[in-house]
Design a protein around this nucleic acid. Structure first.
Length: 561
DNA sequence: GCCGTTTTCGGCCCGACTGTTTTCAGTCG
């Protein structure tokens, strides 16, 4: 586990422990807020500490910064150890039961001397909960069920899913529900709209004048495993394969306020509501209120405008400086899908059999003018590239979508482009980057980066930045490209990146939209994205493409100082 | 414990849902 993740775990634990010993509620919340901040930090906490940046992290003040430094220096936090010594560890497990929070757990501990799950089971069996104020038959039933589910619960709370999995499920469910229910708007909200790299649960927002009918339809969609909760404005269900979806339905006039609220993040909203209150306003999911008068709520733009703020793109709403930037009118323009002209990372599983037609159609639908198929280096790769071009011309005689063929070379072979290919796709690896010069204007990107938090990853990213080699940003987790935090640093260092779908089938080409959202999450402007320009422009002349200059005076494999 | 476009002290977002209650506490997001 990375140091960031370990600190998140510790601060969440400290929050729980403080709740259990009965500390006033704002202190535990402060530790949780700090944990949330670290979770979305996107940079190695050691690096932040080394450059003296801990104080800049929202929710980290003097005391918590000192505890972070203590952890980085010694691997321990004495305060945390002292708290743990005061509280039986089994109580933290009890608090994981759905519907059981700190207050309830504390009552088990103080009133029943129960310190762990087995003790609670026993207390229930002996009837010791019966007659306790607040514990009716239904509550005891829920506790019994919750105790059973305490072990490894697949699909349970806390499990996170890769954003691409959640996004494709959400799109499918949304499209099913649009057909099945009387909804006016139906959109994805929550952390999925913010394009977090991993998703806990999916939030959908609908507007309708007949919420009952919407919930009825939602309850009967394909793929539903269980309806967990249903009220007048929201319903929570568990979908296959174990992803929870929350659907909220509001009246059309509240669409903007509700979308703003349900998109989050929590800390962004708290900042916004605090700002509102300072100005004599109140924000909730139904609108912006001045006294009893609703002054905004139809659109998100209206909500921000009511606070004298420009619109803040969903992907950067993390309370990581976006509100300050908005107050000072310096939120940069972020890259948008229509600006992207090509996708340079397609896998064509079986070029001998598969037809180009569906790829061309998918490219049209997304407004892409070029598609780049990446072939792994092999003896037959050049022949395969030639065959691809011929069949592409036959399928698209008017050349509405251009075909580019890239060659993927394994780590360490260096960016020398053989005849018959348009660009190189260089795979990174556990070792060091190649000590050679990239071939001029030829697009080139690096996938398969070493895992986050490991030093070789930083070396590859630094190398690419220095050499102006484009780095790949894709939602496909198997491609091991940049994440949005990397992207933000790459752009800050004036590096360049490429958004790609890494699609294996035409139906996956739309993942480039998700790649764009991830880039936006990293505050990436259009100018920093290599494939917002057309690669077929004369700047990449055939000569430049075929004859990269090799760097002299250094043998392959030599390290750069 | 954090934080400041009234503040270095005195506040700390806001509402839905549930179970157990005759008006609310706890939990959750």
């Amino acid at each position: 586990m990375s140091k960031n993740a370990e600190l998140v775990r510790i601060f969440v634990s400290i929050g729980d422990l403080l709740d259990l010993i009965g500390e006033e509620r704002f202190k535990p919340e402060a530790y949780r807020r700090a944990a949330r901040s670290l979770e979305s930090l996107g940079e190695d906490i050691q690096k932040v500490s080394d450059r003296g940046g801990l104080d800049d992290i929202p929710g980290v003040g003097e005391a918590i910064a000192e505890k972070i430094r203590e952890y980085l220096g010694t691997g321990k936090i004495a305060y945390y150890d002292r708290l743990r010594a005061q509280v039986p560890p089994g109580l933290l497990t009890l608090m994981q039961i759905p519907g059981v929070g700190p207050k309830t757990t504390r009552r088990f501990w103080i009133e029943l001397q129960v310190e762990e799950p087995r003790g609670l089971s026993q207390a229930i069996a002996e009837g010791r909960l019966t007659g306790m104020p607040g514990f009716g038959p239904r509550k005891i039933e829920i506790l019994t069920e919750g105790l059973k589910g305490l072990g490894a619960a697949p699909g349970g709370a806390g499990e996170r899913h890769p954003v691409v999995v959640a996004w494709e499920l959400a799109e499918r469910v949304a499209s099913d529900l649009r057909r099945a229910a009387p909804v006016k708007e139906l959109v994805i909200a929550g952390s999925l709209r913010r394009a977090r790299e991993t998703i806990g649960d999916i939030d959908l927002l609908a507007t309708s004048s007949e919420p009952e009918k919407v919930f009825d339809a939602f309850s009967h969609l394909d793929g539903i495993r269980e309806v967990r909760l249903r009220g007048e404005t929201k319903e929570t269900v568990l979908f296959d394969p174990g992803i929870q979806i929350d659907l909220r339905v509001v009246a059309p006039e509240s669409y903007g306020a509700a979308l703003q609220y349900f998109t989050g993040s929590k800390d962004h909203n708290i900042r916004l509501r605090t700002l509102a209150r300072d100005r004599g306003l109140k924000i909730n999911e139904y609108g912006v209120m001045r006294g009893d008068t609703r002054i905004a709520g139809l659109t998100e733009e209206e909500v921000y405008a009511a606070l004298d703020l420009p619109f803040i793109p969903a992907e950067i709403r993390e309370n990581r400086g976006e509100i300050e930037a908005a107050l000072e009118r310096r939120v940069p323009p972020l890259v948008e899908l229509p600006q992207v002209t090509c996708d340079l990372h397609l896998h064509w599983e079986d070029p001998a059999k598969e037809l180009p037609g569906p790829w061309i159609d998918a490219a049209h639908a997304l407004g892409l003018r070029h598609l780049g198929v990446v072939l792994p280096e092999s003896d037959g790769a050049r022949e395969m590239a030639r065959g691809l071009r011929t069949r592409w011309r036959e399928a698209d005689p008017r050349s509405t979508v251009g075909l580019l063929v890239g060659l993927e070379r394994p780590e360490g072979t260096g960016p020398v482009l053989p005849e018959g290919f348009d660009y190189l796709a260089l795979a990174a690896g556990p070792g060091d980057p190649p000590p050679i010069e990239p071939p001029g204007p030829v697009p080139l990107f690096v996938g398969h980066l070493p895992p986050p938090g490991q030093e070789p990853r930083h070396r590859w990213i630094a190398w690419a930045q220095r050499e102006k080699v484009g780095l790949e940003l894709t939602p496909d987790p198997t491609a091991e490209g940049l994440d949005s935090g990397d992207a933000q640093r790459v752009v800050a260092g004036e590096g360049r990146l490429f958004v790609t779908s890494a699609a294996r089938r035409p139906a996956e080409l739309h993942r480039i939209e998700l790649a764009v959202r991830l880039a936006r999450r990293g505050w990436v402007p259009p100018g920093a994205v290599g494939n917002t320009r057309d690669p077929g422009t004369p700047s990449a002349s055939p000569a430049a493409r075929r004859r990269p200059r090799a760097r002299r005076g250094r043998a392959p494999g030599t390290r750069r100082s």
